[in-house]
Nucleic acid binder design. Structure first.
Length: 579
RNA sequence: CGCGGGGUAGAGCAGUGGCAGCUCGUCAGGCUCAUAACCUGAAGGUCGUUGGUUCGAAUCCAACCCCCGCAACCA
């Protein structure tokens, strides 16, 4: 708590695919935890750059748009708007949430592509791929179906047989057909660029060995397992028009594959942010200062892209800085410093949220969208629930009962109850005015320790643990009130009663501060109830003017002064009756 | 033998050789300012299975079973 230096924190959040709405998996996976993390660090007085955006290219979008009979650009724009509106309802605050459709992003992606190519990490190779002659398109693996060569199932996909679970190549399928036209596709020769991960393997292996100590166990083991199997070259271009053109002569008909494009978004969104705030080189503060720690909030199968492939790209790209010709030729927008780009520090990836035993994802039609949840429940509850019940180390089944229990037993009965009993008591017995008193030592200690512990938990990306700590503090508050029994001292020793309520209101104020990263709206409600005015809050500033200007530590406790006149008490969290 | 994670009370999880624990829920009693908390007590577990090492195993070893994710456009 004594630390006053300002640290720099970069937060990259997995880019949701712009083909529909945000679903519960996104929340359980990364979109709530990242915001808790960012809000905490801003409060702590640290400089935070949190970026993400809508992943707006790729075949699935193209096909879905065709299915809907609208241009892909329209689908992408509508999805992007939907995502922004859902994020806003959930109080998710980014320094920059953008999209892969921007001119800036295109420039950065092509720049990276060309540098990797010049450094010899990209090579071309010819291959045969299924082509649907009726709709004139090359087919991604999963759009080719046929008979499984292993078990004989009739509707096996080109990537996997859903019956026997065998992993396939489209060419393996017997009697293949295109899911787009039901016609028989033909194998056609095509040529693509490949990223030579093999060449980068030793560097990546060394980096993972050295830096994975702070990662979650499953993230570390999963990544090491991937490397152990051997990295294979990966296609980085596609036969399509929809996307970012390959910036090489003769390749005008092809685009850069979305997986490579989307991770570059972390960098391009940072550059875009620097432009938005009018300091085009400011992104370098976060990307080139080795003291700036990079965190990536993602989930499940996205993990190796962030623990292996994106770091590989960064390592390879950074060779530009020791090559004068490339440095002169391929400067990024606003780039002034000849320093390597920062690699990830921690990747607090979550496991999967399951629905009826299976993972929720758009692809499988097994998802629930967040908007319908927001119609029923308040956003702070949803935020808290997805932190408290996050699948940090194991997959987890989504249960309605858990959501209701979380609300009724934790927000209502623990935190809400204490605030309510204190404010009601002051309202009915003390004319809603804070009495005089002296801060008890154990109250002060509890507040200090909780600030410290929750701060450490969040900083270590142990979010479930941080909510344990918060609820333990709620227990302490309730127990304090109970043990002091002001309803008795009110009749027998009014001074003692005043002192208890003085301390209780300090605990309410402590709760108000402690819940800021988790329950921002409720925290503001309490600020109103306590009649606290003109308090600086970096998260509110970011929301209102789009930028944080002040870097002082607000993750600290200040007392509510005696004689403060409070506003009439209100219920913060409504109990949910079983339906 | 593809890679990895997991299996401990109704639910969620701690627990790396020494009496099986924590949180929530359930039941009974006390108390009551509160959408209720707090206190006291209770019920509830062959620690996935089998075998081994050991004075002693949830923990170490071996084999096996089950669940989940990944295997390259899926958070």
């Amino acid at each position: 708590m004594d630390k006053t230096t300002t640290n720099k924190i970069f937060i990259g959040v997995s880019w949701p695919y712009a083909s529909g709405k945000i679903h519960l998996g996104h929340l359980a996976g990364q979109n709530i935890a990242c915001d808790v993390f960012a809000r905490y660090h801003r409060l702590r007085g640290n400089r935070v750059l949190m970026v993400s955006g809508s992943d707006s290219h790729g075949t699935p979008i193209l096909f879905k748009a065709e299915e809907l009979g609208i241009p892909p650009e329209q689908l992408v724009e509508e999805s992007h708007k939907n995502i922004l509106s859902t994020f806003d309802k959930l109080s998710l605050l980014y320094e920059n949430y953008t999209s892969t459709t921007t001119e800036n992003h295109k420039k950065v992606v092509q720049n990276i592509f060309l540098v990797l190519k010049e450094r010899g990490y990209l090579y071309t190779q010819k291959s045969k791929q299924y082509y649907d002659e009726k709709v004139n398109k090359y087919l991604p693996d999963r759009y080719v179906r046929g008979i499984c060569p292993k078990c004989g199932a009739v509707n096996a996909r080109g990537d996997e047989c859903p019956e026997c679970g065998e992993f396939l190549s489209p060419e393996d399928l017997l009697s293949p057909f295109s899911t787009l036209s039901d016609t028989k596709p033909v194998l056609k020769e095509t040529e693509h660029f490949y990223l030579d991960l093999k060449k980068l393997e030793p560097k990546i292996k060394e980096w993972v060995e050295d830096s994975s100590g702070v990662w979650r166990k499953w993230v570390r083991e999963f990544s090491k397992g991937w490397i152990k199997e051997g990295l294979r070259p990966r296609e980085v271009t596609r036969d399509m028009k929809f996307g970012i053109p390959v910036p090489v002569e003769g390749w005008e008909d092809k685009v850069i594959y979305v997986w490579i494009e989307a991770v570059v978004g972390y960098l391009s969104a940072s550059i875009e942010w620097a432009n938005i705030i009018g300091k085009p080189s400011e992104w370098e503060e976060f990307w080139k200062d080795p003291k700036c720690k990079h965190y990536y909030f993602i989930a499940g199968g996205n993990t190796p892209f962030h623990t292996i492939i994106w770091p590989a790209e960064l390592l390879a790209y950074s060779e530009k800085y020791s090559d004068n010709t490339l440095w002169e030729k391929y400067k990024l927008p606003g780039e002034t410093l000849k320093e390597n780009l920062n690699l990830p520090y921690n990747i607090p990836s979550n496991k999967m949220l399951l629905n009826k035993g299976k993972k929720m994802s758009k692809g499988d039609g097994n998802s629930m969208d967040v908007d319908s949840l927001l119609e029923k429940y308040n956003s702070d509850l949803i935020r808290f629930f997805f932190v408290r019940y996050a699948p940090e180390n194991h997959d987890r089944e989504f249960e309605w009962k858990d959501l209701i229990d979380c609300n009724n037993n934790e927000l209502v009965a623990n935190i809400g109850n204490f605030i309510n009993r204190t404010l009601s008591f002051l309202n009915s017995k003390f004319e809603n005015t804070v009495p005089n008193g002296v801060l008890d030592n154990n109250v002060k200690n509890a507040i200090d320790n909780t600030l410290k512990n929750i701060g450490e938990n969040i900083n270590n990306c142990e979010f479930v643990k941080s909510t344990d700590e918060l609820l333990r503090f709620g227990d302490f508050c309730n127990k304090y009130f109970n043990d002091k029994a002001p309803w008795i001292s009110y009749k027998e020793d009014i001074k003692e009663c005043e002192n208890t309520l003085y301390n209780s209101i300090q605990l309410v104020n402590a709760l108000r501060i402690l819940i800021k990263p988790f329950l921002p709206i409720s925290s503001i409600e309490i600020t109103k109830l306590l009649n606290i005015q003109n308090e600086y809050d970096p998260n509110i500033e970011l929301k209102e003017i789009g930028e944080v200007k002040n870097f002082e530590n607000k993750w600290s406790f200040e007392t509510v002064q005696p004689n403060t006149k409070l506003n009439p008490p209100e219920i913060l969290f409504e109990k949910i009756l079983e339906s």
